[in-house]
Design a protein around this nucleic acid. Structure first.
Lengths: 186, 186, 186, 186
DNA sequence: TATGAATGAGGCTTCATTCAT
DNA sequence: GATGAATGAAGCCTCATTCAT
């Protein structure tokens, strides 16, 4: 019984998916264990508390979002239009068929009153989102207005993801959000 | 031993506030009892399960939102412009200083995988929102486009409320949302 | 299932006996529950943590010791000799057939590194012991020497109780301790 | 992968110190491992159970006590007075600044109901103590009374060590104990 | 020898719920 | 109607122990 069954990364990946779908509280250590093929107690070999594991999933999500979405804002070789296209498409692909919507938003709902240590990570994620999108827009709109437009676009995107939890037809709202984003440099 | 300390409505009001601030799971029956001046066991005189109580808070929230927001869309005596102004202002007032943001959105995050019976009520709330806002806009935009615009506005509003959980500066995004709503008939 | 099965005092009494015999750690909440006829979870109706329950047992032990032992030092009607006789006899009766010896000493071993909040209660107990015995002796020996003699007598008593854990023949050592105590005013 | 990091003796030494300070239960195999520079699993190369390791620490403690204390009772070249002086001084040095007091006494508190296999070793330690001290005294007092006096002295010493856990001022009581011991042949 | 991964039992605690009074 | 006592299931976490590498 010392056969390696998974890895720190493996645990993070399974936990991330479960947290995204069911939230922090409704995901038990036993659930995560089952998903990894471990017993609940064995997860403590990799993480010393559930909260530390949650923190690791948030870090991972930030890195993935950077790779999938935010980084496209800084591609030196691309025009602003192209960067915006890539940004919007990155969002579409990132949340496509992603059960549970946005991990960060889900945590934002739970973290406020019970996991205050996680709030800064979540805030950082949203800031990166706004900052990178504003970076694309600021040549056209100036920094101040670009930040406003970026924040509004983020809000619409997150709102659409929320509505999709209740009614799948809201997927159309998400698409319109991406579409309207493109028209900002259209 | 039977002095009436509160009422069904009293319990609902306290529970609603707690659910909005802390979420369904993180609000215990004991918390609600404390807020009402009851012991947790006594709540079962009014509601047979916690979920039934939650359901009652959702119904109440719908009614309040109708009164504060949605009904303004159907005021026969008012112009569409005036209705839209009232609608936007209703939203502002409804969520002003409301700790925890939107009860319905909060439940949407928790209800999906764990309280499926509540989803229809939540869906109904968002439909009422879209339907009433679209009612104001459809003379100008036609029904189909009016529904889209209404849904997008709802998404932006909910997204802004979410961002406010993480960073209070997002209040500005909420205001811009109301402002842009008005310009739809400007 | 709402039949009263025990009381706060009942829980304290059972817990005290188990803590004395088996120590704090080796007594589980389930053990205490079993002794009371409760489930482990039900104990939390009376005490919010195991440590709080432990604290209550220490308070109780102090009160019992005052009644059985320490108070005899302050009986106005009695001569010093008589007080000393009562004091020594109180000790004998208090620890007679008391499985586990002295609750306070047992806790002193565990409390140091893991339950620091309990140390002051334990210290208080030993101080009361020394203070009351010295009160009997100080007319004869002066306060300073009386405090020394009292502390030495306490040490011998506690040491004898410890040895009895290992070898029941040490009961004789406990008796000699009481005997030598009497000869202090002999 | 097989570099020797420590030895059986090394593990015993570290474990002994931890058991003395924190007790058997509150010392985890991981703690011992950390102290030795090993992982907890590696300790099982030297000892097949935690209890066996505990047993080894008790054996070691007995040997050290013999060397430091008990043997002085049998020094053929010395007078009884000198032997007693050495015995008392051995005790003083042995427990001087020894965090946690007497390993054997600590185990006596835990071992009774949970580690019965260790009781004989502990009993043996106390017997050696009494036997060797009585050996010094028996020419003067006769065997029977010498055994009593030795047991009483041991009790007082252990009691003083216990009181030191609660209040460091009890160090004076320990010193008086050694002093009174000397006066037995004074 | 030493490691790191895994186990499984057990511990404390929380909580929705029930019910006799 | 309200209470307080009790339940039982579940949750997080710890730890001695095992074992393939």
């Amino acid at each position: 019984m010392a056969i390696r069954k998974t890895s720190r990364q493996g645990v993070i990946d399974h936990a991330l998916r479960l947290f995204r779908r069911n939230g922090y509280h409704y995901t038990s250590m036993a659930d995560i264990g089952t998903a990894c093929g471990l017993l609940k107690g064995s997860i403590y070999h990799y993480f010393s508390t559930k909260e530390e594991l949650a923190s690791a999933t948030l870090e991972k999500e930030i890195n993935v979002a950077k790779e999938h979405i935010f980084n496209s804002a800084y591609q030196e070789g691309n025009s602003d239009q192209q960067r915006l296209i890539d940004f919007a498409e990155g969002i579409s692909l990132h949340f496509k068929d992603r059960e549970g919507g946005c991990l960060m938003a889900n945590f934002a709902f739970e973290a406020g009153n019970t996991l205050p240590e996680l709030m800064p990570i979540i805030a950082h994620y949203f800031e990166e989102w706004v900052e990178s999108l504003a970076h694309i827009l600021e040549k056209r709109y100036g920094r101040h207005r670009a930040l406003e437009l970026a924040a509004d676009s983020l809000a619409r995107t997150q709102g659409a993801l929320l509505l999709m939890k209740v009614d799948n037809r809201a997927q159309a709202a998400l698409q319109r959000t991406q579409h309207d984003m493109l028209s900002l440099l259209g």
